[in-house]
């Protein structure tokens, strides 16, 4: 595959500096990078898994509403961003690796490159914070 656009590369380099979990996808939703804080949420290391197809990483999270009912993927911020190329934010619950529901806030934004081209999406997980 070709080299990523520098807008994607710079998003990865930025994510690498942050202490908040960041996930970066291509336009199809394939996970192309996640930083170290995100590794603890995903339960795997980027160095081990490398990139992950959307159908693989999309099933790792079990998003739930406040009553513990599963949330449809269409309502999740990153899924919406990849569809409409707009930023989104939502507070919901995910089943943690230990099986307990964990409240999270997710902000997603589209990477619109220098020439106005849609290149991918970024999801930031703000753990245990109502934002």
């Amino acid at each position: 595959m070709a080299t990523y656009d520098i807008e994607i590369i710079l998003n990865r380099q930025l994510a690498d500096c942050l202490s908040i979990p960041v996930f970066i996808t291509d336009t199809a939703g394939n996970l192309i990078f996640y930083n170290e804080p995100a590794e603890t949420i995903l339960g795997s290391r980027f160095g081990d898994t490398g990139e992950m197809p959307v159908e693989v990483w999309g099933t790792i999270f079990k998003p739930l509403d406040e009553k513990g009912k599963p949330l449809p993927p269409e309502g999740l911020p990153l899924v919406k961003t990849l569809k409409d190329q707009l930023p989104h934010h939502k507070v919901f619950w995910i089943e943690s690796l230990k099986g307990k529901p964990q409240k999270i806030s997710v902000t997603s934004y589209p990477i619109i490159g220098r020439m106005g081209k849609f290149l991918g999406g970024v999801a930031i997980f703000w753990e245990n914070k109502d934002i």
Partner: peptide, 18 residues
């Protein structure tokens, strides 16, 4: 090499590789 880890030696992640 801009970034906390410098150059990422993976051709997909090197600015200007191609």
């Amino acid at each position: 090499a801009l970034g906390p880890k410098g150059l990422i030696f993976d051709k997909k992640w090197i600015s200007g590789f191609e």
